[in-house]
Nucleic acid binder design. Sequence first.
DNA 1: CTTACTGTACCGGCTGGACGGTCTTGTCAA
DNA 2: TTGACAAGACCGTCCAGCCGGTACAGTAAG
Lengths: 177, 177
Amino acid sequence: MRAPRANSREKILAAAADVAREAGPGSLSLEAVASRAGVSKGGLLYNFPTKAKLMQGLVESYLRDFQKALEARTAESGHESALSAYIKLSADDCERPKPSASWIFSAIAEDPDFLTPIKAFKHQLLERLKEETSDLGSLLVCFLAIEGLRSMNLFDSDVLSEDEHKLLVASLLKIAG
Amino acid sequence: MRAPRANSREKILAAAADVAREAGPGSLSLEAVASRAGVSKGGLLYNFPTKAKLMQGLVESYLRDFQKALEARTAESGHESALSAYIKLSADDCERPKPSASWIFSAIAEDPDFLTPIKAFKHQLLERLKEETSDLGSLLVCFLAIEGLRSMNLFDSDVLSEDEHKLLVASLLKIAG
DNA sequence: CTTACTGTACCGGCTGGACGGTCTTGTCAA
DNA sequence: TTGACAAGACCGTCCAGCCGGTACAGTAAG
Protein backbone atom coordinates (compact mmCIF):
# COMPACT_ATOMS: atom_id res chain seq x y z
CA MET A 1 0.00 0.00 0.00
CA ARG A 2 1.38 3.36 -1.00
CA ALA A 3 1.77 5.53 2.02
CA PRO A 4 -0.40 8.65 1.91
CA ARG A 5 1.85 11.64 1.21
CA ALA A 6 0.75 13.27 4.40
CA ASN A 7 -2.62 12.52 5.88
CA SER A 8 -4.62 13.41 2.80
CA ARG A 9 -7.98 13.26 4.50
CA GLU A 10 -6.98 15.76 7.16
CA LYS A 11 -5.39 18.06 4.63
CA ILE A 12 -8.50 17.98 2.47
CA LEU A 13 -10.81 18.67 5.40
CA ALA A 14 -8.67 21.60 6.47
CA ALA A 15 -8.52 22.90 2.92
CA ALA A 16 -12.28 22.73 2.61
CA ALA A 17 -12.71 24.76 5.78
CA ASP A 18 -10.17 27.29 4.50
CA VAL A 19 -11.84 27.68 1.14
CA ALA A 20 -15.27 28.14 2.69
CA ARG A 21 -13.91 30.77 5.05
CA GLU A 22 -11.89 32.72 2.52
CA ALA A 23 -13.80 32.40 -0.73
CA GLY A 24 -17.23 32.14 0.83
CA PRO A 25 -19.45 29.13 1.41
CA GLY A 26 -20.87 29.41 -2.08
CA SER A 27 -17.47 28.89 -3.65
CA LEU A 28 -16.74 25.58 -2.03
CA SER A 29 -16.25 23.48 -5.16
CA LEU A 30 -14.40 20.20 -5.33
CA GLU A 31 -11.79 21.69 -7.64
CA ALA A 32 -11.15 24.59 -5.31
CA VAL A 33 -10.76 22.28 -2.33
CA ALA A 34 -8.50 19.88 -4.19
CA SER A 35 -6.28 22.67 -5.45
CA ARG A 36 -6.08 24.22 -2.00
CA ALA A 37 -5.20 20.87 -0.46
CA GLY A 38 -2.43 20.31 -2.97
CA VAL A 39 -4.25 17.30 -4.33
CA SER A 40 -5.85 16.53 -7.65
CA LYS A 41 -9.55 16.22 -8.13
CA GLY A 42 -9.16 12.50 -8.60
CA GLY A 43 -7.29 12.30 -5.34
CA LEU A 44 -10.02 14.16 -3.53
CA LEU A 45 -12.73 11.98 -5.02
CA TYR A 46 -10.71 8.95 -3.99
CA ASN A 47 -10.82 10.00 -0.33
CA PHE A 48 -14.35 11.40 -0.43
CA PRO A 49 -16.29 9.73 -3.25
CA THR A 50 -18.94 12.41 -3.10
CA LYS A 51 -19.33 16.01 -2.12
CA ALA A 52 -21.87 14.92 0.45
CA LYS A 53 -19.30 12.57 1.97
CA LEU A 54 -16.88 15.45 2.22
CA MET A 55 -19.46 17.49 4.08
CA GLN A 56 -20.17 14.58 6.34
CA GLY A 57 -16.45 14.32 7.03
CA LEU A 58 -16.37 17.99 7.98
CA VAL A 59 -19.28 17.57 10.37
CA GLU A 60 -17.78 14.49 12.01
CA SER A 61 -14.34 15.96 12.42
CA TYR A 62 -15.86 19.15 13.81
CA LEU A 63 -17.91 17.26 16.36
CA ARG A 64 -14.99 15.04 17.30
CA ASP A 65 -12.72 18.02 17.89
CA PHE A 66 -15.37 19.79 19.85
CA GLN A 67 -15.98 16.86 22.11
CA LYS A 68 -12.28 16.35 22.65
CA ALA A 69 -11.77 20.01 23.55
CA LEU A 70 -14.70 19.92 25.91
CA GLU A 71 -13.48 16.80 27.66
CA ALA A 72 -10.03 18.28 28.02
CA ARG A 73 -11.47 21.43 29.57
CA THR A 74 -13.72 19.63 32.00
CA ALA A 75 -10.90 17.31 33.00
CA GLU A 76 -8.26 19.95 33.61
CA SER A 77 -10.53 22.04 35.79
CA GLY A 78 -12.22 19.18 37.59
CA HIS A 79 -13.52 21.18 40.51
CA GLU A 80 -15.58 23.50 38.34
CA SER A 81 -18.92 22.72 36.85
CA ALA A 82 -19.12 21.37 33.33
CA LEU A 83 -21.19 24.41 32.41
CA SER A 84 -18.36 26.75 33.40
CA ALA A 85 -15.94 24.74 31.35
CA TYR A 86 -18.28 24.93 28.39
CA ILE A 87 -18.65 28.68 28.80
CA LYS A 88 -14.91 29.22 28.91
CA LEU A 89 -14.24 26.93 25.98
CA SER A 90 -16.83 28.72 23.87
CA ALA A 91 -15.53 32.11 24.90
CA ASP A 92 -12.06 31.11 23.74
CA ASP A 93 -13.36 29.63 20.51
CA CYS A 94 -15.24 32.79 19.69
CA GLU A 95 -12.36 35.11 20.43
CA ARG A 96 -10.67 34.03 17.25
CA PRO A 97 -11.71 36.71 14.79
CA LYS A 98 -12.19 34.30 11.90
CA PRO A 99 -15.22 32.05 11.98
CA SER A 100 -13.86 28.55 11.72
CA ALA A 101 -16.96 26.86 10.46
CA SER A 102 -18.39 28.73 7.48
CA TRP A 103 -18.37 25.39 5.75
CA ILE A 104 -21.55 24.71 7.70
CA PHE A 105 -23.38 26.99 5.31
CA SER A 106 -22.14 24.96 2.37
CA ALA A 107 -23.26 21.79 4.08
CA ILE A 108 -26.72 23.21 4.69
CA ALA A 109 -26.98 24.26 1.06
CA GLU A 110 -25.99 20.75 0.02
CA ASP A 111 -28.52 19.16 2.33
CA PRO A 112 -30.09 20.61 5.49
CA ASP A 113 -30.01 17.16 7.08
CA PHE A 114 -26.31 17.59 7.76
CA LEU A 115 -27.41 19.59 10.76
CA THR A 116 -29.03 16.56 12.37
CA PRO A 117 -25.88 15.20 14.07
CA ILE A 118 -24.99 18.67 15.29
CA LYS A 119 -28.48 19.10 16.66
CA ALA A 120 -28.22 15.74 18.40
CA PHE A 121 -24.85 16.65 19.85
CA LYS A 122 -26.16 19.87 21.32
CA HIS A 123 -29.22 18.20 22.70
CA GLN A 124 -27.06 15.60 24.38
CA LEU A 125 -24.79 18.30 25.78
CA LEU A 126 -27.72 20.18 27.21
CA GLU A 127 -29.04 17.01 28.82
CA ARG A 128 -25.67 16.38 30.44
CA LEU A 129 -25.59 19.91 31.79
CA LYS A 130 -29.12 19.58 33.13
CA GLU A 131 -28.12 16.65 35.31
CA GLU A 132 -25.55 18.82 36.94
CA THR A 133 -27.49 21.96 37.74
CA SER A 134 -30.26 22.71 40.13
CA ASP A 135 -31.44 25.93 38.50
CA LEU A 136 -32.76 25.08 35.05
CA GLY A 137 -33.56 28.70 34.22
CA SER A 138 -29.98 29.86 34.72
CA LEU A 139 -28.69 26.93 32.73
CA LEU A 140 -30.93 27.73 29.81
CA VAL A 141 -29.94 31.37 29.83
CA CYS A 142 -26.26 30.46 29.80
CA PHE A 143 -26.68 27.78 27.18
CA LEU A 144 -28.59 30.04 24.84
CA ALA A 145 -26.25 32.96 25.38
CA ILE A 146 -23.35 30.75 24.37
CA GLU A 147 -25.34 29.65 21.37
CA GLY A 148 -25.75 33.31 20.53
CA LEU A 149 -22.05 33.91 20.90
CA ARG A 150 -21.26 31.02 18.59
CA SER A 151 -23.84 32.16 16.10
CA MET A 152 -22.39 35.66 15.98
CA ASN A 153 -18.94 34.24 15.46
CA LEU A 154 -20.23 32.01 12.71
CA PHE A 155 -21.91 34.91 10.96
CA ASP A 156 -18.76 36.95 11.46
CA SER A 157 -20.77 39.59 13.31
CA ASP A 158 -18.41 41.10 15.83
CA VAL A 159 -21.09 43.26 17.38
CA LEU A 160 -19.42 43.06 20.77
CA SER A 161 -16.25 44.90 21.72
CA GLU A 162 -13.51 43.03 23.52
CA ASP A 163 -14.50 44.52 26.85
CA GLU A 164 -18.11 43.61 26.32
CA HIS A 165 -17.07 40.10 25.44
CA LYS A 166 -15.22 39.78 28.72
CA LEU A 167 -18.05 41.30 30.68
CA LEU A 168 -20.47 38.87 29.09
CA VAL A 169 -18.35 35.86 29.96
CA ALA A 170 -17.94 37.09 33.52
CA SER A 171 -21.69 37.59 33.84
CA LEU A 172 -22.39 34.14 32.49
CA LEU A 173 -19.93 32.51 34.87
CA LYS A 174 -21.58 34.35 37.70
CA ILE A 175 -25.01 33.13 36.66
CA ALA A 176 -23.68 29.62 36.23
CA GLY A 177 -22.43 29.78 39.78
CA MET B 1 -49.01 52.19 -17.96
CA ARG B 2 -50.14 48.63 -17.35
CA ALA B 3 -51.01 48.08 -13.71
CA PRO B 4 -49.05 45.29 -11.96
CA ARG B 5 -51.34 42.25 -11.63
CA ALA B 6 -50.82 42.17 -7.91
CA ASN B 7 -47.65 43.48 -6.34
CA SER B 8 -45.27 41.18 -8.16
CA ARG B 9 -42.27 42.17 -6.10
CA GLU B 10 -43.93 41.16 -2.87
CA LYS B 11 -45.15 37.92 -4.35
CA ILE B 12 -41.69 37.06 -5.61
CA LEU B 13 -40.05 37.87 -2.29
CA ALA B 14 -42.53 35.69 -0.44
CA ALA B 15 -42.07 32.90 -2.95
CA ALA B 16 -38.30 33.03 -2.55
CA ALA B 17 -38.63 32.67 1.21
CA ASP B 18 -41.03 29.77 0.76
CA VAL B 19 -38.78 27.94 -1.68
CA ALA B 20 -35.75 28.34 0.54
CA ARG B 21 -37.67 27.03 3.53
CA GLU B 22 -39.30 24.09 1.81
CA ALA B 23 -36.78 22.95 -0.79
CA GLY B 24 -33.68 23.99 1.13
CA PRO B 25 -31.43 27.01 0.70
CA GLY B 26 -29.40 25.20 -1.94
CA SER B 27 -32.40 24.84 -4.20
CA LEU B 28 -33.25 28.48 -4.44
CA SER B 29 -33.03 28.89 -8.21
CA LEU B 30 -34.61 31.68 -10.18
CA GLU B 31 -36.83 29.25 -12.04
CA ALA B 32 -38.09 27.71 -8.81
CA VAL B 33 -38.85 31.13 -7.35
CA ALA B 34 -40.54 32.33 -10.52
CA SER B 35 -42.69 29.25 -10.78
CA ARG B 36 -43.65 29.45 -7.13
CA ALA B 37 -44.57 33.10 -7.50
CA GLY B 38 -46.74 32.37 -10.53
CA VAL B 39 -44.47 34.46 -12.70
CA SER B 40 -42.20 33.62 -15.58
CA LYS B 41 -38.47 33.75 -15.33
CA GLY B 42 -38.45 36.81 -17.54
CA GLY B 43 -40.95 38.48 -15.23
CA LEU B 44 -38.76 37.76 -12.24
CA LEU B 45 -35.69 39.12 -13.99
CA TYR B 46 -37.71 42.19 -14.87
CA ASN B 47 -38.36 42.94 -11.20
CA PHE B 48 -34.97 41.77 -9.93
CA PRO B 49 -32.43 42.03 -12.74
CA THR B 50 -30.01 39.79 -10.85
CA LYS B 51 -30.07 37.06 -8.28
CA ALA B 52 -28.02 39.29 -6.03
CA LYS B 53 -30.69 41.98 -6.31
CA LEU B 54 -33.29 39.46 -5.26
CA MET B 55 -31.25 38.56 -2.18
CA GLN B 56 -30.82 42.22 -1.41
CA GLY B 57 -34.57 42.64 -1.68
CA LEU B 58 -35.06 39.81 0.80
CA VAL B 59 -32.64 41.37 3.28
CA GLU B 60 -34.24 44.79 3.02
CA SER B 61 -37.76 43.53 3.36
CA TYR B 62 -36.74 41.37 6.32
CA LEU B 63 -35.12 44.28 8.11
CA ARG B 64 -38.03 46.59 7.34
CA ASP B 65 -40.55 44.11 8.74
CA PHE B 66 -38.41 43.47 11.79
CA GLN B 67 -38.09 47.15 12.57
CA LYS B 68 -41.78 47.70 12.10
CA ALA B 69 -42.66 44.80 14.41
CA LEU B 70 -40.23 46.05 17.02
CA GLU B 71 -41.60 49.57 16.92
CA ALA B 72 -45.14 48.28 17.21
CA ARG B 73 -44.18 46.19 20.25
CA THR B 74 -42.36 48.97 22.03
CA ALA B 75 -45.18 51.39 21.32
CA GLU B 76 -48.04 49.21 22.51
CA SER B 77 -46.33 48.41 25.79
CA GLY B 78 -44.91 51.83 26.45
CA HIS B 79 -44.28 51.41 30.16
CA GLU B 80 -41.96 48.44 29.69
CA SER B 81 -38.36 48.59 28.67
CA ALA B 82 -37.42 48.22 25.03
CA LEU B 83 -35.37 45.18 26.00
CA SER B 84 -38.44 43.42 27.37
CA ALA B 85 -40.33 44.21 24.19
CA TYR B 86 -37.47 42.81 22.15
CA ILE B 87 -37.38 39.64 24.24
CA LYS B 88 -41.10 39.07 23.85
CA LEU B 89 -41.07 39.77 20.16
CA SER B 90 -38.22 37.34 19.61
CA ALA B 91 -39.85 34.71 21.77
CA ASP B 92 -42.97 34.93 19.64
CA ASP B 93 -41.01 34.88 16.40
CA CYS B 94 -39.16 31.77 17.49
CA GLU B 95 -42.25 29.92 18.60
CA ARG B 96 -43.27 29.40 15.00
CA PRO B 97 -41.89 25.95 14.23
CA LYS B 98 -40.76 26.84 10.73
CA PRO B 99 -37.70 29.02 10.39
CA SER B 100 -38.83 32.00 8.38
CA ALA B 101 -35.45 33.05 7.10
CA SER B 102 -33.60 30.08 5.63
CA TRP B 103 -33.09 32.27 2.60
CA ILE B 104 -30.31 33.88 4.61
CA PHE B 105 -28.19 30.83 3.88
CA SER B 106 -28.75 31.27 0.18
CA ALA B 107 -27.81 34.91 0.48
CA ILE B 108 -24.59 34.06 2.31
CA ALA B 109 -23.71 31.50 -0.32
CA GLU B 110 -24.29 34.12 -2.99
CA ASP B 111 -22.17 36.69 -1.19
CA PRO B 112 -21.30 36.87 2.52
CA ASP B 113 -21.49 40.66 2.35
CA PHE B 114 -25.26 40.44 2.41
CA LEU B 115 -24.83 40.05 6.16
CA THR B 116 -23.42 43.55 6.51
CA PRO B 117 -26.76 45.38 6.74
CA ILE B 118 -28.05 42.81 9.20
CA LYS B 119 -24.93 43.19 11.28
CA ALA B 120 -25.33 46.96 11.23
CA PHE B 121 -28.97 46.66 12.24
CA LYS B 122 -28.14 44.50 15.22
CA HIS B 123 -25.32 46.75 16.29
CA GLN B 124 -27.63 49.72 16.16
CA LEU B 125 -30.27 47.84 18.14
CA LEU B 126 -27.76 46.94 20.82
CA GLU B 127 -26.62 50.54 21.06
CA ARG B 128 -30.21 51.68 21.54
CA LEU B 129 -30.72 49.15 24.29
CA LYS B 130 -27.50 50.19 25.99
CA GLU B 131 -28.75 53.74 26.38
CA GLU B 132 -31.70 52.43 28.29
CA THR B 133 -30.10 50.07 30.77
CA SER B 134 -27.89 50.58 33.74
CA ASP B 135 -26.56 47.02 33.97
CA LEU B 136 -24.58 46.28 30.84
CA GLY B 137 -23.80 42.72 31.88
CA SER B 138 -27.46 41.75 32.15
CA LEU B 139 -28.22 43.42 28.86
CA LEU B 140 -25.49 41.49 27.10
CA VAL B 141 -26.63 38.20 28.55
CA CYS B 142 -30.19 38.83 27.41
CA PHE B 143 -29.15 40.08 23.99
CA LEU B 144 -26.93 37.10 23.34
CA ALA B 145 -29.47 34.63 24.66
CA ILE B 146 -32.01 36.03 22.22
CA GLU B 147 -29.42 35.75 19.49
CA GLY B 148 -29.04 32.13 20.46
CA LEU B 149 -32.77 31.60 20.36
CA ARG B 150 -32.97 33.10 16.89
CA SER B 151 -30.02 31.09 15.72
CA MET B 152 -31.59 27.84 16.91
CA ASN B 153 -34.81 28.73 15.15
CA LEU B 154 -32.91 29.55 11.99
CA PHE B 155 -31.08 26.25 12.08
CA ASP B 156 -34.35 24.50 12.83
CA SER B 157 -32.85 23.07 16.01
CA ASP B 158 -35.70 22.73 18.43
CA VAL B 159 -33.46 21.63 21.28
CA LEU B 160 -35.74 23.26 23.83
CA SER B 161 -39.11 21.90 24.86
CA GLU B 162 -42.05 24.24 25.07
CA ASP B 163 -41.79 24.44 28.84
CA GLU B 164 -38.11 25.19 28.66
CA HIS B 165 -38.80 27.88 26.12
CA LYS B 166 -41.25 29.53 28.48
CA LEU B 167 -38.90 29.19 31.42
CA LEU B 168 -36.11 30.75 29.42
CA VAL B 169 -38.22 33.73 28.42
CA ALA B 170 -39.36 34.20 32.01
CA SER B 171 -35.77 34.07 33.24
CA LEU B 172 -34.68 36.58 30.64
CA LEU B 173 -37.47 38.99 31.52
CA LYS B 174 -36.48 38.68 35.15
CA ILE B 175 -32.87 39.46 34.36
CA ALA B 176 -33.92 42.35 32.13
CA GLY B 177 -35.84 43.74 35.09
C1' DC C 1 -63.88 57.38 -32.99
C1' DT C 2 -59.89 55.44 -34.99
C1' DT C 3 -55.33 54.60 -36.06
C1' DA C 4 -50.61 54.92 -35.10
C1' DC C 5 -47.08 55.20 -31.74
C1' DT C 6 -44.81 54.68 -27.05
C1' DG C 7 -43.43 52.74 -22.80
C1' DT C 8 -44.38 49.28 -19.23
C1' DA C 9 -44.98 44.66 -17.62
C1' DC C 10 -44.19 40.14 -18.55
C1' DC C 11 -43.05 35.70 -21.24
C1' DG C 12 -40.08 31.65 -22.25
C1' DG C 13 -36.49 29.59 -25.19
C1' DC C 14 -31.54 29.77 -25.43
C1' DT C 15 -26.65 29.73 -24.23
C1' DG C 16 -22.38 29.90 -22.04
C1' DG C 17 -20.13 28.66 -18.11
C1' DA C 18 -19.52 26.24 -13.79
C1' DC C 19 -19.56 22.20 -11.29
C1' DG C 20 -20.12 17.26 -9.66
C1' DG C 21 -18.79 12.94 -10.84
C1' DT C 22 -16.52 9.29 -14.23
C1' DC C 23 -12.83 7.23 -16.72
C1' DT C 24 -8.48 6.43 -18.57
C1' DT C 25 -3.86 6.79 -17.84
C1' DG C 26 -0.11 7.14 -15.10
C1' DT C 27 3.08 6.27 -10.76
C1' DC C 28 5.31 4.21 -7.01
C1' DA C 29 5.88 1.02 -3.07
C1' DA C 30 6.10 -3.75 -1.96
C1' DT D 1 4.39 -7.27 -11.60
C1' DT D 2 0.76 -5.80 -9.17
C1' DG D 3 -2.39 -3.11 -6.92
C1' DA D 4 -3.31 1.01 -4.11
C1' DC D 5 -3.73 5.40 -5.19
C1' DA D 6 -3.15 10.01 -7.81
C1' DA D 7 -3.84 12.86 -11.99
C1' DG D 8 -6.72 15.63 -14.86
C1' DA D 9 -9.30 15.45 -19.30
C1' DC D 10 -13.97 14.73 -20.15
C1' DC D 11 -19.15 14.47 -19.88
C1' DG D 12 -23.83 15.58 -18.50
C1' DT D 13 -26.55 18.62 -15.86
C1' DC D 14 -28.07 22.67 -13.98
C1' DC D 15 -28.66 27.43 -13.81
C1' DA D 16 -28.05 32.67 -14.19
C1' DG D 17 -28.64 35.94 -17.25
C1' DC D 18 -29.88 37.46 -22.14
C1' DC D 19 -32.92 38.45 -25.78
C1' DG D 20 -36.48 38.63 -29.09
C1' DG D 21 -41.14 38.49 -28.55
C1' DT D 22 -46.34 39.63 -26.75
C1' DA D 23 -50.03 42.18 -24.44
C1' DC D 24 -51.84 46.13 -23.04
C1' DA D 25 -52.55 51.06 -21.21
C1' DG D 26 -52.06 55.59 -22.27
C1' DT D 27 -51.51 59.53 -25.71
C1' DA D 28 -52.27 62.00 -29.68
C1' DA D 29 -52.96 63.20 -34.30
C1' DG D 30 -56.44 62.96 -38.09
